[in-house]
Nucleic acid binder design. Structure first.
Lengths: 251, 251
DNA sequence: GCGATCATTATTATCGATATTGATTTTCTG
DNA sequence: CAGAAAATCAATATCGATAATAATGATCGC
């Protein structure tokens, strides 16, 4: 587990807003994603508070959020445990993600980024920085933020929570897995790759954009978690690339 | 707004587990669903604490949860406001719900309720009780619990958060609306209606089951929020009833 | 010896007080 | 009088201590 303590606000690496509870949540989320805390581990609020250098209540709030994300399970008066991940759950989430991302791509192909362009650019720049610094954890954060940003820009804010959850658990599977050597993993998922994806999506017809997006997901999985890619199955990618299925037509 | 205070645990109407934070959350959720707290209302933790008879921290946790559900928006250091609802958002959520519920029905038609049958029965019985007692709020809770239970029983636990959110906001629209006189509303959504639905779903072929389910949603909307039904559009119901679109094949 | 009942323990859940923050208003200074 | 700096204010965010809870182990009557 990471052993850093929470400085008092303002100096935390990310979350420049500097709420202790956010920073605590990030550290714990990271520990779970990278399997420094493995499924089944018992967490006690007091112990975490001591480790993170904050009070029990702050830890508590962070755990509450992690529970909503599905990374831990809280049992009243009896502690918190890190949830298990199963291949079949991850598979289902990836399929859901494909459906959503395909629809996002289709919409972006038609209406463009509009006023989200600048924010997305910033994200991509940060991604380059994080990659240069070898900060895989931050790359993961930014990757999720990127895809969520696209989803919002595509006028599907209501799907963001779903997409976020899917992406989070997919990262949990890929980052925590042991299928791919660490050094190689650090080469992946960088800014320029996402920039290329974005250009393709914005410059193609809707269905071509959808295919580019699903191909992006496939590429990532092929590189980081081949077994998950196999479990998802090719036909899920094809289906998602083919026709609209989600939520109709409005913003 | 409801003015009840939190007794100390154990005596709360529902949530027999009796955590104050749960009870506080229920009261606030109810106030928002029934529009006793209208969109845009500013909430302050201290004031709510005084009203609910608990401490600021407890209110805080409850608000945190409501924020995850999308009923309020929290702004760091600057208070919490009740979110706005728009017809277009509700429309999108209903469409999403139709897709999910149709898939749930299809699966239940094939594999049955398995071991969830007993729990579902209990829910339906509670629904009758609540209806006889004229407790519309509890009927709403139980209705959501029923549909979530089916979703889980159908082997789609990962869609539960999505479905829950969709159902919640749909209830917000119907319960808070003024399209239908109160007395009439209280006649709706009762246990025997859900029992009939369940029997039809379990005793039909997959696609017929899906149509029965979407028709159920349509009926509810027709009765409680005709304008929302119109905004969703018939073709969304037909499409959801037609072919599987969600998440593939696994549990 | 044996089951029921009562302490013990580990942990969460709640509280009341204090620190921090962002916005607003006031005060100073040129 | 305008504009910056300082004081104030209304809120959240955090803390440390205490109460409530569920599980476990000890005790007692028989």
């Amino acid at each position: 587990m990471s052993t850093q303590a929470l400085q008092h606000a303002s100096t935390g690496r990310d979350s420049l807003g500097g709420l202790k509870v956010d920073r605590a949540g990030e550290i714990l989320r990271d520990d779970i994603l990278f399997r420094r805390l493995s499924p089944g581990t018992q967490l006690t609020e007091q112990a975490l508070a001591a480790r993170l250098g904050c009070s029990q209540g702050t830890v508590r709030e962070a755990l509450l959020r992690l529970a909503e994300e599905g990374l831990v399970e809280r049992r009243s008066y009896r502690g918190t445990v890190v949830t298990e991940t199963t291949l079949s759950e991850a598979t289902a989430l990836v399929r859901m993600r494909l459906d959503i991302e395909a629809e996002v791509a289709r919409r972006l192909a038609q209406s463009g980024l509009s006023d989200a362009a600048e924010a997305i650019d910033t994200l991509l720049a940060d991604m380059d920085t994080a990659h240069d610094a070898g900060d895989l954890s931050r790359c993961s954060d930014l990757d999720r933020a990127f895809h969520l940003g696209l989803c919002r820009a595509a006028g599907l804010p209501l799907l963001c929570p779903v997409l976020g959850r899917a992406a989070l658990h997919m990262h949990r599977f890929t980052l925590g897995g042991v299928e791919v050597p660490r050094a190689f993993r650090e080469e992946a998922g960088v800014g320029h790759e996402h920039r290329a994806l974005l250009n393709t999506v914005l410059g193609s017809a809707p269905n071509a954009a959808a295919r580019a997006m699903t191909e992006h997901v496939a590429t990532v999985l092929r590189r980081w978690a081949p077994s998950l890619l196999a479990a998802v199955g090719d036909q899920a990618f094809d289906a998602a690339g083919a026709a609209a299925s989600i939520g109709g037509t409005e913003a």
